[in-house]
């Protein structure tokens, strides 16, 4: 009996020591863990906008970090999921560091580009970071953030049509104004207009090149060469096409008259 009691006593003491050492070293490792963030990069492909968030984890502690999983889910203002990106790092050994790039891909085909081009809105992001510390302690961290979206063609308006003659054609002139609220990109490309009468007959077209930096307004005049002035009616419509370097949009139908 005495030996059993003594053995239990030693086992308890050994477990206490183990627990204390594990607690102290875990706490030390967690406190000394270095996390740094790099400059986010935004790139565009034909169908997607990719935001790359580089970050560095410097694991100077005593224990490995395993199963590091970074997930970013983005929803639009109505709560519809538009993107979900995951980055997985299987192992960051003790005493080493890992440079990780978390790519958040936003498929442009999933977006209501027409609404985003003209209306400011907010994207809601939910970022979840999960990892296993010391191969034994699962940790999960999450945060929500609201990212304001600035419309690149905010408050687009086309003024009254004016007419003038050159040597060969009747020229319609329209004033075009908009504000680029986007903090991310310039509105660079061509705005093209097609002119139709009330019967839907094509009258002529014109275009203008624009280069509007972020947080800037645009005010310009567009000239539309009318092929057959006899078809001109008091009212009709202007179809506007936007051929930009990062997106194409149109036609936006604006009635006149």
């Amino acid at each position: 009996m005495k030996n059993a009691v003594r053995a239990l006593g030693w086992a308890t003491r050994a477990l206490w020591v183990l627990l204390m050492v594990f607690s102290a070293t875990s706490l030390y490792s967690a406190v000394t863990l270095g996390i740094g963030f790099g400059e986010p990069q935004v790139s565009y492909s034909e169908d997607a906008m990719v935001t790359s968030l580089p970050f560095l984890i410097n694991n100077t502690g005593f224990y490995d970090i395993t199963d590091l999983n970074v997930t970013t889910a983005i929803t639009d203002a109505e709560g519809k999921a538009i993107s979900s990106s995951t980055t997985f790092v299987p192992l960051i050994t003790a005493g080493s560091n890992a440079e990780v790039v978390h790519n958040i891909s936003l498929s442009l085909s999933d977006l209501n580009l027409t609404a985003l081009a003209f209306e400011d809105t907010n994207f809601e992001t939910n970022t979840i970071v999960a990892l296993k510390f010391a191969r034994a302690i699962p940790v999960q961290m999450s945060t929500n953030a609201s990212i304001p979206w600035g419309a690149p063609l905010y408050n687009l308006s086309i003024g009254e049509i004016g007419y003038k003659f050159n040597d060969t054609h009747l020229i319609g002139t329209v004033n075009l104004t908009f504000e680029n609220h986007s903090p991310f990109f310039s509105v660079t490309g061509t705005i093209r207009c097609e002119f139709y009468n009330s019967k839907g007959e094509y009258l002529g077209s014109g275009g203008t090149n624009v280069d509007v930096p972020p947080y800037s307004g645009y005010q310009g005049q567009m000239e539309l060469a009318l092929n057959d002035p006899t078809k001109l009616t008091p009212n009709g419509e202007i179809r506007v096409y936007f051929d930009m370097t990062i997106f194409s949009l149109g036609p936006l139908v604006i009635p006149y008259g």
Binding site: V5, L8, G9, A11, T12, L15, W16, L18, L19, F22, S23, A136, I137, P138, V139, Q140, M141, S142, T143, N144, A145
Partner: peptide, 26 residues
Amino acid sequence: VTFNIMLDLRIFLAMFILINLLSLGK
């Protein structure tokens, strides 16, 4: 910015319970 952190400390709890179970047995 509010961060929601969830820590799974069941391993520590298990060790504390084990220690007390041994103490109880003793």
